[in-house]
């Protein structure tokens, strides 16, 4: 309660007859790294869009507890959403009017290890490189909250692993509050402080991950979370 960054209270979201979110309440602390996992159609992206302010809840409230209001939240998607007609550097700097923008953009490109690619166009880069540009762009406005909607979904296993480490490292160093949507429970167990399972339009289960976990612990957490995702609703009601 004391240092919570995002407070979601009894949120419902419906599209015409379809319930995308049902009575979701979640409290996320400043600096926390949350993984949202679950079957597709479970409402993960919808929740992220509500937090980002891209959509409004049908009922309930989403509260961001910060005094900053400008460019507080940045979202990164599975598609890189880079502008193909702009160089990598221009893709980073086009949204801002600041004089030091270019220098800041270069710093961030160095951070994502793409310092030599500033003048390249997006279609000259690989999928992983494009996602790193998208990550750098998300960081341009000094956000406090980073929302990641399956950003690594389209990458091969090796690139994916490198990106996980890079994202973790950046989020820790910049003390970002992060929500990562992923359907990969292993990824969730490796990266998150807390895993929230989205099922049947609500957050049905959560698990706090041990600090400094080893591969074995990651496997155990991943298995348990996967079990929760796959569990039949009837069984869930009996055990509840």
């Amino acid at each position: 309660m004391n240092n919570s960054m995002i407070t979601i209270k009894n949120v419902n979201k419906t599209y015409e007859n379809l319930t995308a979110l049902h009575d979701v309440s979640l409290d996320i602390k400043q600096g926390e790294f949350i993984a949202l996992v679950g079957m597709s159609g479970g409402g993960k992206s919808t929740l992220l869009r509500l937090i980002a302010g891209l959509e409004k809840p049908t009922s309930g409230s989403v509260q961001i507890n910060s005094t900053d209001t400008k460019s507080l939240i940045q979202v990164m998607f599975q598609e890189d959403r880079l502008l193909p007609w702009m160089s990598v550097l221009d893709n980073l700097s086009f949204g801002s009017k600041d004089k030091n923008t270019k220098a800041h953009a270069k710093e961030l490109l160095d951070l994502v290890e793409l310092g030599d690619y500033a003048d390249h166009f997006p279609n000259q880069l690989s999928g992983g490189q494009k996602q790193r540009v998208a990550l750098a762009r998300a960081l341009m406005s000094h956000p406090k909250i980073l929302l990641l909607d399956e950003p690594l979904g389209a990458l091969d296993a090796l690139t994916r692993r490198k990106m996980q480490d890079l994202i973790l490292d950046i989020c820790q160093k910049q003390n970002l509050t992060t929500i990562l949507v992923t359907h990969d429970v292993e990824e969730a167990a490796r990266m998150a402080d807390r895993i929230v399972v989205m099922k049947d339009s609500t957050n049905s289960y959560e698990e706090t991950c041990p600090k400094n976990r080893n591969a074995g612990q990651i496997g155990i957490v991943a298995d348990r979370v996967l079990g929760e995702i796959l569990e039949e609703p009837e069984v869930q009601q009996q055990t509840a």
Binding site: A52, L54, V75, F77, E79, R81, W85, G95
Partner: peptide, 27 residues
Amino acid sequence: PDLIEMGESYELSKHQMFFKIIFPAAL
């Protein structure tokens, strides 16, 4: 539409939206 949403999240003006996103995309 993803690029347009991205532009909106950057709070581009209508003018900027057209010249930075829509026109180059349609060119």
